[in-house]
């Protein structure tokens, strides 16, 4: 693990993974969209509106997955002071915020025709809105505190405290009766969704996962650059007079 603590080594690893992740994204997205629109049936209750599921559910899954990436990175940063861990949290946060916003927006657009309302203040929708605020709060803390070390610690602690929200999101539909349907894929007794709909759903979930890998690696490289520039600025500030 600490082998990749070296930014140069990390960049080499990222450059090796990036073409594969990009290729996987293109293939999965193409196949996923094909199945989503041309090779899956309309739902017997929901009609064609069910096609929103193929982008709503992957966005929601990735919203939680990305939060766990950010939380593990924050934990690693706080406990082992791994040099790349803080950067990983910073790199993940905006991606998670976008996934969460998309889960909410696509959910509203699916809820309106099916439930008759864009929004209800139930356990699931409210806890996902809290997730969005956790991402935004994490990014705001980085912005608000000038001293990098303090900012990193505050943001990481917020990310860790927010982890309690993840099981609340997952089990909210079981704990509180709500308009939102319970899980139909990630169940202990196996998926209850038909194979013809599971196929495009899993392909699109794969595409979203590959998208995360690509953009996360780009953002990691960008955070490493930012860090290098900050260090270089400090060095030049403390350089002896006449060194410019």
């Amino acid at each position: 693990m600490h082998r990749f603590a070296n930014p140069a080594q990390f960049n080499r690893l990222a450059d090796a993974i990036l073409p594969w992740a990009t290729g996987a994204f293109v293939l999965l997205l193409g196949a996923g969209l094909y199945y989503a629109f041309f090779d899956s049936p309309p739902d017997y209750q929901q009609g064609e509106s069910v096609r929103v599921m193929y982008i709503h559910v992957p966005a929601a899954w990735m919203a939680m997955f990305t939060y766990m990436v950010m939380a593990v990175a924050s934990f690693t940063a706080l406990v082992w002071r791994h040099p790349l861990a803080l950067l990983a949290g910073r790199a993940a946060a905006p991606i998670g915020a976008v996934f969460t916003a998309l889960a909410l927006i696509t959910g509203m657009l699916w809820g309106k025709p099916m439930w008759g309302t864009y929004w209800v203040w139930d356990g699931r929708l409210t806890s996902v809105l809290v997730l969005l605020f956790l991402y935004l709060g994490y990014m705001a803390l980085w912005q608000a505190i000038d001293e990098e070390e303090k900012a990193g610690r505050a943001a990481s602690i917020l990310a860790l405290v927010g982890v309690v929200n993840i099981p609340i999101i997952k089990f909210s539909v079981d704990w509180w009766s709500t308009l939102h349907q319970p899980a139909s894929v990630m169940r202990l007794d196996g998926p209850t969704i038909d194979g013809s709909m599971l196929m495009p759903l899993l392909l699109m979930a794969g595409a979203y996962q590959a998208y995360f890998a690509v953009v996360f690696l780009w953002r990691m490289k960008l955070e490493i650059n930012r860090r290098k520039l900050a260090v270089a600025r400090q060095v030049s500030m403390h350089a002896p007079v006449g060194a410019e």
């Binding site: 309309p42 009609g47 064609e48 509106s49 096609r51 929103v52 982008i55 709503h56 966005a59 976008v98 916003a101 998309l102 927006i105 696509t106 657009l109 699916w110 309106k112 025709p113 998208y211």
Partner: peptide, 20 residues
């Protein structure tokens, strides 16, 4: 026309594509 759900389905896909 997406079986009458066009505005919901295409807005959802359009917003997702634009944001990503």
């Amino acid at each position: 026309s997406m079986g009458g759900y066009a505005s919901f389905v295409w807005t959802a896909y359009g917003t997702s594509a634009a944001a990503l």
